[in-house]
């Protein structure tokens, strides 16, 4: 049984509708995002489901996961804090911002907070160069930008996310 299709029948149908029927393969990226909605990474089970939906091999689906940085084969924190340290941001203090943020959270880039809530990642230009320092948050099937940041404002954002997670956790329970 295709779990993905079972869980999100309408989304799957809407995605497949975008592309000519003989090019179902095109649906792979939107389907991978869908697969990440639930737990933030693409599970082996989802790979099989997507392979079935697109007529690809599981190897080919995995290959796509590996190429694109917004797809994650491994579980990380619930929210991925993706700080841009590319040249324009760096000219406006992004490297220092990231260093302080790591210190504040007590983890380094690539690591996850012990409560499983946040993973810090360093990313390339996000087209917000004029509002550096900035980061985006990937999690809960969404991506949001946070610009003109200081470490203090960033910690506020994270606090908000933590509350959001607790709230949705309670609702689910």
């Amino acid at each position: 049984m295709n779990e993905l299709q079972k869980r999100y029948p309408e989304d799957v149908a809407a995605i497949l509708k975008k592309y000519p029927p003989e090019f179902r393969r095109s649906a792979i990226m939107p389907l991978l995002y869908l697969a990440q909605r639930q737990d933030g990474h693409v599970s082996g089970r989802s790979v099989t489901d997507i392979a079935e939906l697109t007529g690809l091999s599981t190897t080919d689906v995995t290959s796509v996961v590996g190429f694109y940085t917004l797809f994650h084969a491994e579980a990380g924190g619930r929210y991925r804090i993706q700080v841009c340290t590319d040249l324009p941001c760096a000219l406006r203090g992004a490297d220092d911002f990231l260093a302080l943020l790591q210190k504040e959270l007590g983890i380094s880039v690539g690591e996850t907070t012990p409560d499983g809530m946040f993973t810090i990642e360093e990313v390339k230009c996000l087209a917000a160069c004029h509002r550096a320092p900035m980061f985006q948050v990937q999690g809960d099937g969404d991506i949001t930008y946070h610009e003109h940041q200081t470490v203090e404002s960033a910690m506020q954002v994270l606090k908000g996310l933590r509350q959001q997670a607790q709230k949705s956790g309670k609702e689910a329970a």
Partner: peptide, 11 residues
Amino acid sequence: DESEPGTFKDR
């Protein structure tokens, strides 16, 4: 796709 570092006009 606007990904060239320093480019944010299309946005």
